[in-house]
Design a protein around this nucleic acid. Sequence first.
DNA 1: GGACTAAACGGACTGCGGTCCGTTTAGTAT
DNA 2: ATACTAAACGGACCGCAGTCCGTTTAGTCC
Lengths: 214, 214
Amino acid sequence: MPETDPVEVFLPPVCPPTGRAPLPLLGGPPAERSDAARNRVALLDAARRLVDADGVAALTMERLAAAAGVGKGTVFRRFGSREGLMAAVLDFTESAWQASVISGPAPLGPGAAPLERLLAFGASRAELTLVHADLIAAAGHRGSRNLAVHSFVETHVRYLLTQLGVRGDLPLVTSALIAPLEAPVLVQQVRIEGYPIDRVVAAWRDVAERIVRG
Amino acid sequence: MPETDPVEVFLPPVCPPTGRAPLPLLGGPPAERSDAARNRVALLDAARRLVDADGVAALTMERLAAAAGVGKGTVFRRFGSREGLMAAVLDFTESAWQASVISGPAPLGPGAAPLERLLAFGASRAELTLVHADLIAAAGHRGSRNLAVHSFVETHVRYLLTQLGVRGDLPLVTSALIAPLEAPVLVQQVRIEGYPIDRVVAAWRDVAERIVRG
DNA sequence: GGACTAAACGGACTGCGGTCCGTTTAGTAT
DNA sequence: ATACTAAACGGACCGCAGTCCGTTTAGTCC
């Protein structure tokens, strides 16, 4: 693992939930070859199956390659690293949640008052993060940042705080409000220290309300 | 790396800042053998030198063993894993900071008003965390939790919040207030997104004041 | 000093992440 | 259909974290 991570784009990125590559943009890089596309889908599929079956820790790159019927080199060309693979699996599984925030039923989805939405968001996000905690950890810094879902979370919360008229350095206050919902923090509180998740969520809501009240 | 980390006590723990083992307690485990003690000090010393010289990424367990003039097995018996080693180095380097919070000059140390101390704490902690970010990352979950300094931070902030008369679920509110000061969050904001650290600290102080005001 | 034992030692060994490069193949132009 | 090329392929290979077990040694009791 290099200290300063190099440029990390593995084109073209997967496009959940189909795992299919996006249509080539005019003037962009050339379209993906059909064998590459087949292998991407096969790999992502096999990875999800293996994780479901035996857990994150049991998934090795060689096993995945064997399960998908490709060579090890192909796995690394596709995902760059084990962390990259895990991030792809995670992105895939979280896209459904993202959709439910954008267009699902209130209060998580649109329609409820902003504060109500914010509180619903915290509970939902905490729950999901705990479910995916192993995957997030295995994805390294890509697990909590550098991921579509992360910038989505930031944008959504900042939007709600704006709606609520919160003053101050919004991007950084938003980030501070999201920080307690990061996987390592929740894992420590719930899995290690044994706090019930409801109580953790209630405390987060308390903090959120104090921030909103100013 | 096992999914569920097993019991992880490597007796006896180092006692910063000397790196010496604590005196054996009556009825406790037998005292450490002299060769083991010598090797612990030599290893911790060599590790700090190597990290200073070439950075965290360049430190391999084999190199460390060679530098300290011991076998590889000894390094692992002493620290359990690379993460354990990094945590030991980190604990060592952070003990000075801890001392300055306990008994250093105000406003970080005792003597200032609680709110002033809290704000000074945030700035100081953020700065230190950023300096040690690589080490913290290399120490894995031991880097931010499971470490003497972590429970110290929790205890200190909870104490200050109590002094300030903050109501609510104090342990969890404390944890939420500390979360934005965790290394990955700060690294994202400062190193990746490029926010000046002063601005990050200011936002944290803003959040802290809102929590205190209730 | 000599014998004994529990602990420490150290290096060969394993498995995994990640790289490299010679080989194969999809897509295209003729 | 054939030739051509850029991209994908795959498995041998490397370095490192972590384990195992036969060997050495510190501390103790006579």
